[in-house]
Design a protein around this nucleic acid. Structure first.
Lengths: 207, 207
DNA sequence: AAAAAGTTTAATCATTTGATTAAAATAAAA
DNA sequence: TTTTATTTTAATCAAATGATTAAACTTTTT
């Protein structure tokens, strides 16, 4: 998967990302990372000054991965209905490729909100977007149910993200394997897309 | 809050619950627990043989707290509409009292699925309930949209649980304090109850 | 009251862990 | 090639951590 001549710094970051996402900050030892990267454990401190610094770097990358695509979408000049659909599709794709991204971010943020506030600052930009204005306009025009955009955004995010946050539990409760879970998630996506759109865009409102 | 003559064992469990829920298994030291319980750290090993055993005990309690009320509800002989509403109310109450219950369980399960599978076994009982049969009946009678009960249960759970899983992020993104978050969550509850019920119980189906 | 059982503590052990250091290996510059 | 700078390693340190032990203290039993 990796090209042969990958810089040591990148190798360390790749390994750290894998291990941190799997075990979290507290559950990860610097030796874990060194082993996963195939390097001497002192090298980690040579490139990144400490476990904490390396973690901050990874956490920042993960927040960017989480939010940049969504930020791009909420500000794109497309119709509300299309935007909501694309927002959900994008999240779903992202989570299928990185199933433990959300549990990682949410958990680390829960453990240490102060330490990570700066890093997650981009989350603040989500509410202040074109999306918000579009919602207000649509409400004024009677196209959608009157409801604050924060709630809509929360619905969009929760129904997809929680699927993956609870992945191990769902697999256990339903006795699914990886493929079975993916099928369930894919089907669920369609249902929640319908549910949210039907809730917002009521026929009696648009008529 | 605690009565004066509380058994040492209970004091330790109370403290361990608080610390484990806050910091997780990896982030918690036995000294943390001892300090929180106001005891010598060797006492923990006297009552519970190890940190691992104590954790298992707490984790089991938390799973029970999470699922027993819901299991009771899904099997109660009440109407589907009432049941869905009560399921959501119950979860909401539970999470208001224990906001980090879900992130704790989901995270520990993610870190160590095998170790905790036995403990979470009760989650398996959720799908095999009267609720499931009620859904199938309602679909057969054309009262609700045809959809597998797993998906309905997931919608019910996700829309509430994720509110609390993402609590720190929501507070940051919207600049809310504790009271502000609670107000947001309470309002959101009403929206998602409406959304789910409207999605399932379509007027054209019941007529 | 004396003995026995149960509870609690201080001191300590062996590992683990994040980090440093000094030296070795490699690459770059002169 | 020699010198200098950069990269990598082995060895090690100090602190933290889970656990144990032996002794002190308390309660219960006889």
């Amino acid at each position: 998967m990796k090209c042969i001549s990958e810089s040591t710094e990148e190798r360390i970051k790749e390994a750290a990302k894998t291990v941190f996402l799997e075990k979290g900050f507290d559950g990860t030892t610097t030796r874990d990372i060194a082993k996963a990267a195939g390097i001497n454990s002192a090298l980690m401190n040579y490139y990144f000054r400490s476990k904490e610094k390396l973690f901050q770097s990874i956490f920042n990358d993960m927040c960017t991965l989480m939010f940049e695509g969504m930020l791009d979408l909420v500000n794109r000049p497309i119709s509300l209905r299309d935007k909501i659909s694309k927002l959900m599709d994008h999240q779903f794709q992202m989570m299928m490729q990185n199933p433990n991204l959300t549990i990682f971010i949410m958990n680390e943020l829960h453990r240490n909100p102060e330490r990570l506030y700066a890093t997650v600052g981009m989350a603040k930009k989500l509410p202040e977007s074109i999306f918000h204005q579009q919602i207000e306009d649509a409400i004024a025009q009677g196209i959608i149910t009157p409801i604050d955009s924060h709630h809509i955004m929360t619905m969009i995010i929760a129904n997809i993200q929680f699927l993956f946050v609870s992945k191990p539990m769902t697999m256990l409760a339903q006795g699914l394997d990886e493929a079975g879970f993916n099928a369930f998630a894919t089907r669920h996506m369609e249902y929640v897309k319908d549910m949210i759109c039907e809730y917002l865009f009521k026929p009696e409102l648009s008529s």
